[in-house]
Design a protein around this nucleic acid. Sequence first.
DNA 1: TAGCCTGTAACCACGCTGTGAAAAATGGCC
DNA 2: GGCCATTTTTCACAGCGTGGTTACAGGCTA
Lengths: 263, 263
Amino acid sequence: MSDARPPMRVAIIDNDSGFVRVLTNRMDSAGWQHRVLSSAVPPQELVAMKVHALLVDVSILGNEGWGYLEKVCSLLPDLGVLVTMNGATVSQRVKGLRLGADDWVNKPCHPEEVMARTEAVVRRRRRVGSGADDAPVMVGELEIRPDQFQAFISGQSLDLTRREFELLYLLASNDGTVLERDRIYQSVWGYAMAHGDRSVDVFIRKLRQKLERRSPAFAYIHTHFGVGYRFAVETSVPDLPGPDKEDPGREAERDAEATSAPA
Amino acid sequence: MSDARPPMRVAIIDNDSGFVRVLTNRMDSAGWQHRVLSSAVPPQELVAMKVHALLVDVSILGNEGWGYLEKVCSLLPDLGVLVTMNGATVSQRVKGLRLGADDWVNKPCHPEEVMARTEAVVRRRRRVGSGADDAPVMVGELEIRPDQFQAFISGQSLDLTRREFELLYLLASNDGTVLERDRIYQSVWGYAMAHGDRSVDVFIRKLRQKLERRSPAFAYIHTHFGVGYRFAVETSVPDLPGPDKEDPGREAERDAEATSAPA
DNA sequence: TAGCCTGTAACCACGCTGTGAAAAATGGCC
DNA sequence: GGCCATTTTTCACAGCGTGGTTACAGGCTA
């Protein structure tokens, strides 16, 4: 949120060399970083490039264009996607936008406008997004320093790996609020979670282990069954006084019954 | 939260009656809610309208147009802003986008495209927003925080399951009004209730148990025989030592009359 | 009083999560 | 390039929470 914003990074999928040359010239003088590709690349590579937006001419991808557009948009919801095309009809434009594109610019178009539209798309993301604001987080005895990629409890480092750290940072940044697995995965891994993926659970466990080792008196990560996880520093299991069961005998009976685990 | 998404709500500032008529017709058939304004309104009013997006023709505002656009965009960063205008030049469009507009559509344009672009803008906002879509509810000592998936009484968590929580949230959101079982089921479960299904009753009971445990002095959920349930915080029958039996007539009267603060 | 509606408790099946470990991928080092 | 250590991902399985059903008892309406 300070003045020192990282330069805009965009990927361009287009083979209209004239258009690309004019556009990239403008981008250069504006300090933008760009990567020109002549064909579709796997969405994961776009993640690796760490671009803020994708400028794609779907017409050069042939019939695969629409499918590619849809795949990218659903897999990378955080990526700004602008489509360019020569003389697209209204229904084509509507189709593209409905598939998930953020904007559509018909060629021929002025590079300045393309850049302004790209900014508009990305601006909205940065404004509210869980973007790269490197603010340290301090909750109770826990301290997280994004600049050091380290987390401390009472000054002792937790010695987290990269994923563990990013997961903890996300959770602690949203102290008190429940985050669904999908959103966690999207934020930490950078792309949409596949159905049935258990990675989040596994890393939650690792985090819990390391947190518990350093401070056994507190519980940090709480499970919300069927929903997700919530970060909050609470004294671990104070054994709530009197669960107010009317009949203690009944409880014992049920407990006795419930041990029906067939080997 | 659940499947039920609220319909799209947009404000339209335009005096091109022909364009507006065609556009609103389309919106009506798509189930959108719209509010047409013939001149600029203070940004606070836009907030009060709870619209997701603003569609504005800056040209009808004269020289004030640009200033108004800038003011709205800076004051309401969460609002989607689309500008429409007759034959705007490239530099005008760029100027508008740089001032904070999310999209720019030159007239004449197809209403379907305008709507698709509006969806794209709002979609992006929802996507990155930290999910603070639902407002907390506070009734008496009861506090419900949708972001935490938790409900509290006097600060103590009620430890509700997912269904229990959504049911309580629905009831408390409609404080004072009777909700029929069908409506409740449709809202919480997301589909129509099968004939003879008792799930609602069972969950009402679970809720009552947990509520009563935390605050025995109050009754929260009231049965309306043959109709449904009504949420209202009332002091539960004080059980005066005088009468051997409770007077059924008095009870019925209480249910019918004692509605406190119908919102 | 008869009949329908609701309160209540117990039961069970399913899906979700915790957990350990193996397999795969990554990255550093020689 | 090949090897080793670390990290990440996948997999299988056990345990249990949750939600939905059912049955019975009690209450309300007509």
